[in-house]
Design a protein around this nucleic acid. Structure first.
Length: 427
RNA sequence: GGAGAGGUGGCCGAGCGGCUGAAGGCGACGGCUUGCUAAGCCGUUGUACGGGUAACACUGUACCGGGGGUUCGAAUCCCCCCCUCUCCGCCA
């Protein structure tokens, strides 16, 4: 969330930025409540100071065997007044927090202003989409023909938009996970984490999924757990309420996890295949960095994610999201979109964002220079990369006229060396 | 799930309801001493939110797992919750 003091000092910037994100902003109410809060604190604390002084005086009188009845009577009155004022402050502070929790982060000046995806800017394209001398098939046709993808049984077992991977399809998924983790840990110096899939309400609030996106998350009512929608949630919370020594920054984590999304807003949207599903796998990159360096770190994060697609030889493009298309918590986001010739579209496989201090303030993740005061870190994250769509891209980009699929070279060591997925003997 | 024990500052560890933001020790930092090292001596050593300052200084309040209660006054008494440890049960 944003800092009220910052909003007060940068009101026009805040109003512009939040409007650009298509959010309303009750700034007048917020500032009014904050004034109320600050004046209330001064008043009640003055009373408490007087009460404390009197308390010491009572203690002294008692020790010296004098009568303290008058002061004690005064204390009782003061106590009641303080209790009333404190109760009022609690209400005011909750109201302030409610506003801030639902107020988006301000976009960085370099982010294009615009209402939606139409204002996004393609900033880079890598690779050349392959030209086919036969009709390119979509992954659902390839996958079902190869007997490596089974959406029908996924639907039977769990419901619509669930699926099974089978045989070489399942192995390909597993190979991709291992490959990505190995690249990030060995070549990009990320530390691997394997996180919990169920998290508490406090954890989901700290990264910004709650309260605004509660309808997007699977909830385990009995224990008030939320199934993670991305490893970003547990991994960012890994350092919640900690003060890190400045010299450990930047901290870089790579985490594989399952991801669970209700896709509530997408219900009824026609999507064939497994482009949009309720459960998928993803390798997520999370960084905790010094605020002065967060925009450089964002570029590095993006480059780390891009390496995965380059090594897989998948054509992709980098899209700088406009203010209207960004997530609530982000100040700047690049999407990575991989080319899927069978679907004939670019599929988002990564979203690399700088959240600045927005998550760190909610989660109280700070660092301290030697002798300095604690300051909030900046958090960043991006997929490195998301799976079902990368799996889709491999099938569709590397399909042959006979419906077989060539395995990208970098994945072969993870698949016992085999280089082609074909109909014949299912493994 | 059952039974017991416990949660105090960076760490260890004291703490009669008032003089305790918290003894003592360790560690860290600053200074002195010292040929080097080791040791010794002196001092400093939390966080948040207000007020205050150009910035310090200074100052108020709160914080002894979390929340509530009793009391003029709670680390200390009472209640609820969370977590950790030990034993039993269950289980991949």
């Amino acid at each position: 969330m944003l800092d009220v003091a910052w909003i007060r000092a940068n009101l026009e910037t805040a109003k512009e930025g939040i409007a650009a994100k298509n959010h309303s902003f009750a700034w007048e109410r917020l500032l009014m409540l904050d004034d109320w809060r600050r004046h209330g604190i001064s008043q009640v604390e003055a009373l408490k100071a007087e009460k404390n002084t009197d308390s010491h005086e009572i203690a002294r009188l008692k020790r010296e065997r004098f009568d303290a009845a008058d002061l004690i009577a005064k204390q009782q009155a003061a106590g009641a007044q303080i209790a009333a004022m404190d109760a009022e402050l609690v209400v005011v502070e909750e109201a302030i927090r409610d506003i801030l929790l639902s107020t988006p982060n301000c976009p960085h000046p370099s982010v294009p202003r615009g209402k939606g995806a139409g204002a996004n800017k393609v900033v880079k394209t890598w690779g050349t989409p392959r030209t086919f001398d036969f009709p390119a098939k979509p992954h659902w046709e390839l996958g079902e023909a190869l007997d490596i993808l089974d959406p029908a049984r996924g639907t039977k077992v769990a419901g619509s938009d669930f699926y099974f991977l089978k045989g070489a399809g399942a192995a390909l998924e597993r190979a991709l996970i291992s490959f990505m983790l190995d690249v990030h840990t060995r070549q990009h110096a990320y530390t691997e984490l394997f996180p919990p899939y169920l998290v508490s309400r406090a954890t989901a609030t700290a990264t910004g999924q709650l309260p605004v996106h509660e309808e997007e998350m699977y909830h385990v009512k009995r224990d008030d757990f939320f199934l993670i929608s991305t490893a970003e949630v547990p991994v960012t919370n890994y350092h919640r309420e900690e003060i890190l020594p400045a010299e450990v920054l930047p901290l870089k984590y790579a985490a594989y996890s399952g991801c669970f999304r209700r896709e509530a807003g997408a219900a009824g949207r026609a999507t064939r295949g497994i482009k949009r599903v309720h459960q998928f796998n993803k390798v997520e990159l999370v960084k905790f960095v010094h605020p002065d360096r967060s925009y450089e770190e964002l570029e590095l994060l993006l480059a780390d994610a891009e390496v995965i697609l380059q090594k897989l030889q998948l054509p992709y493009r980098v899209v700088l999201l406009s203010t209207g298309d960004m997530s609530l918590a982000s100040a700047k986001t690049y999407d990575l979109e991989v080319w899927a010739p069978g679907c004939d579209e670019w599929l988002e496989v990564s979203s690399c964002s700088n959240f600045e201090a927005y998550q760190a303030r909610r989660a109280q993740i700070r660092f301290k220079e030697k002798g300095g005061k604690p300051q909030l870190v900046h958090t960043l994250n991006g997929s490195g990369v998301a799976l079902p769509r990368t799996w889709i891209a491999i099938l569709e980009n590397f399909q042959g006229p006979d419906g077989s699929v060539t395995v990208p070279e970098v994945l072969r060591p993870y698949l016992g060396g085999f280089d082609r997925i074909s109909k014949a003997p299912s493994r």
